[in-house]
């Protein structure tokens, strides 16, 4: 039995013509750029001054943002009215950026769900683990 399906799957296709000359052109361009760059380096310059200034400026802004974000919310002086009810606003992203205060307990129940949900802290031996049992009743 001839394996016709195999011929169909592994049919040999012809690549578009001119591949080698396209590659040659690309390599020539790359090499020419390299020569140009080396010549610029030999002249003592690596580009326009404002290019380097822009990079330095961007770096400075990034460092400043990292410094601000790495500080605790209280150190940043976030206004108290931004925080509101921790149970409502304590989304991890908001807490991370200092826009909400972290809840005192890792698990809190939103006021709207307090009549159907409950959370009980389960004591564990490890001090680095906080274990909660959270349960919700269906409300129709």
């Amino acid at each position: 039995m001839t394996e016709r399906w195999k011929e169909q799957v592994f049919e040999e296709l012809e690549p578009p013509p001119g591949g080698l000359s396209r590659l040659r052109t690309r390599i020539d361009t790359h090499n020419a750029r390299g020569v140009e760059k080396n010549m610029r380096s030999a002249d003592g310059g690596t580009g326009p001054w404002f290019g380097r200034a822009a990079v330095l400026g961007a770096l400075a802004v990034a460092v400043a943002m990292l410094f601000v974000l790495s500080r605790a919310p209280s150190e940043r002086g976030c206004p108290a009215e931004m925080w509101g009810d921790p149970a409502e606003n304590a989304h991890p992203a908001l807490v991370h950026y200092g826009l909400a205060r972290a809840p005192e307990q890792p698990v809190t129940i939103a006021p709207a769900r307090r009549h159907t949900s409950a959370a009980i802290r389960v004591p564990v031996e490890r001090t680095d683990v906080v274990f909660y049992w959270v349960s919700s009743a269906k409300s129709n």
């Binding site: 040999e12 296709l13 012809e14 690549p15 578009p16 591949g19 080698l20 396209r22 590659l23 690309r26 390599i27 790359h30």
Partner: peptide
């Protein structure tokens, strides 16, 4: 290897031009 490589790559992209581009990029 252009032809066999093109044939292999073509089975990922199913597009002649894109497969050709990838062969070129790999060699570059």
């Amino acid at each position: 290897v252009e032809k066999p490589l093109y044939n292999v790559v073509y089975r990922w992209l199913w597009d002649a031009e894109e497969a050709h581009d990838i062969v070129q990029e790999a060699f570059y």
